[in-house]
């Protein structure tokens, strides 16, 4: 069984150690509840950024509908746990499947569009999802859904985040992922190399939407109340900033981007204008001087001293 290759194993050991440290910091109350909440948010944001990166960065399909899929996962999740007493993990998975299914339905027609047209169409789709939710009285309409049980713990977030990263990393480093990269690089050449471009665009979009749905479930169960206003396209822009800052097409970048953006947001919580001005300036300067983002197409495991620790495996990965 080659289920866990050497590198994955090293990563897993490292991650579990990291988890243990953070968990101790939380249970010993060394971290204030403000930063505890932020750790949870960072984890959720990593899932969202990495899944958006799969669509926008790896497959090169500029989507701005992520918040809509997050909303679907969130609402399906809270309805199942709150109204039907469904166990939390089952509700999360159901939310992910619902969001993924919707992603599939939306992706099939819209992914024919290119570049900026796709961007604006997915933005519109995300808004339509939100407006529809706003008009469903069963889930509280515009006032929001109240009385959500607080199921989301740091452990859930951490291990689901780990699973997301593992999933996306292995996907990208397979023939399926290579097909997505080929589409990003040159769609016509990809097609002439035997890549069914529609199939892989929709596949990446569906997977991305499904993980956004799971993240939405985690997000919703961290609060007592969620409203459709939490899932506007401004929210998508947040994840887009993470992905662009970290680097389109880099998982390391998405992690770093989620960290930086969440920290800035938390640190400047009382000065929301400055926060947004900083993002704006950062986005513009990045496009001027480093359009590939902090990490470009690189992964941390590919660089310098770390390369020695994570020796190159049998494939093009890591």
């Amino acid at each position: 069984m080659n289920l866990l290759r050497k590198n994955d194993l090293k990563m897993l050991v490292f991650s579990v150690a990291l988890f243990a440290v953070l968990q101790v910091l939380i249970s010993e109350r060394i971290l204030s509840s403000f930063w505890q909440l932020n750790l949870v948010i960072i984890g959720i944001n990593i899932i969202l950024a990495a899944s958006l990166n799969l669509i926008n960065g790896y497959t090169g399909q500029f989507s701005l509908g992520h918040a809509g899929f997050m909303a679907v996962g969130a609402y399906v999740g809270v309805v199942l746990t709150t109204n039907f007493g469904v166990p939390f993990p089952v509700a999360l998975v159901a939310g992910g499947i619902a969001a993924g299914f919707l992603g599939f339905l939306i992706g099939l027609p819209t992914l024919r569009l290119r570049g900026d047209y796709l961007a604006i169409a997915t933005l519109g789709m995300g808004e339509i999802i939100r407006i529809v939710i706003m008009n469903i009285q069963y889930v509280g309409g515009a006032a929001g859904f109240k009385g959500i049980p607080h199921h989301t713990t740091f452990a859930w977030v951490f291990f689901l985040m780990l699973f997301t990263l593992f999933f996306i990393k292995n996907f990208v480093n397979s023939a399926h992922g290579r097909a997505c990269l080929a589409i990003r690089e040159n769609e016509i050449a990809a097609e002439s190399m035997g890549v069914n471009t529609t199939r892989y665009k929709v596949m990446a979009f569906t997977i991305g939407a499904a993980f956004a749905g799971i993240a939405g479930g985690l997000f919703a169960h961290s609060f007592y109340l969620i409203t459709p206003a939490s899932f506007t396209f401004m929210q998508t822009f947040n994840y887009l900033i993470m992905v662009v800052m970290g680097g389109l097409g880099s998982i390391t970048g998405s992690i770093a981007g989620a960290f930086v953006v969440t920290f800035i947001s938390a640190a400047l919580a009382s000065w929301p204008e400055f926060r947004m001005i900083i993002y704006a300036v950062a986005l513009i300067l990045l496009m001027f001087y480093r359009p590939q983002g902090l990490f470009g197409y690189m992964e941390l495991t590919n660089m310098g001293f770390l390369r020695k620790i994570f020796k190159k495996g049998g494939d093009a990965n890591a």
Partner: peptide, 12 residues
């Protein structure tokens, strides 16, 4: 890249 810049300008 230009589209992302435009989003940045909009926020700004």
């Amino acid at each position: 890249s230009v589209l992302i810049t435009a989003i940045g300008v909009s926020f700004f």
